[in-house]
């Protein structure tokens, strides 16, 4: 499934043109992305939470050469699925 399928569903169910539907879907993901970029979380009941986490420096190893390297501190995005979504996926 891709954005095109979401656009199709909005076109069919809400009655916007395909062009408007595509622009709206684009705006929705842009809003989500800029919120996460600012470090805020996104909480969608029934779906899950997107949370930005800070990772500290850590030591790693280049698996090819065995050389020790430092993996720099970074921010990563994590997704925690809601109980509702997990249950639905397991047909409960």
């Amino acid at each position: 499934m891709t954005k095109a399928d979401i656009v199709e569903r909005i076109y069919e169910k809400v009655g916007f043109s395909k062009k408007e539907s595509a622009e709206l879907v684009e705006t929705v993901f842009d809003l989500i992305k800029s919120t996460l970029e600012e470090g805020d979380k996104i909480k969608i009941a029934g779906f899950g939470n997107f949370v930005v986490k800070e990772k500290a420096d850590r030591r790693g190893r280049n698996p090819q050469t065995g050389e020790e390297i430092t993996i720099s501190a970074r921010k990563i995005l994590t997704f925690k699925p809601s109980q509702v979504l997990k249950a639905a996926i397991n047909n409960q």
Binding site: M1, D5, I6, R9, I10, K13, V14, L24, V25, V28, I44, G46, F47, L85, A88, I89
Partner: peptide
């Protein structure tokens, strides 16, 4: 509201 619901429902349905 309808649009936001469709966005997440479509993704849930696909995963289901």
């Amino acid at each position: 509201e309808a649009i936001i619901s469709i966005v997440f429902d479509s993704m849930s349905d696909a995963l289901k």
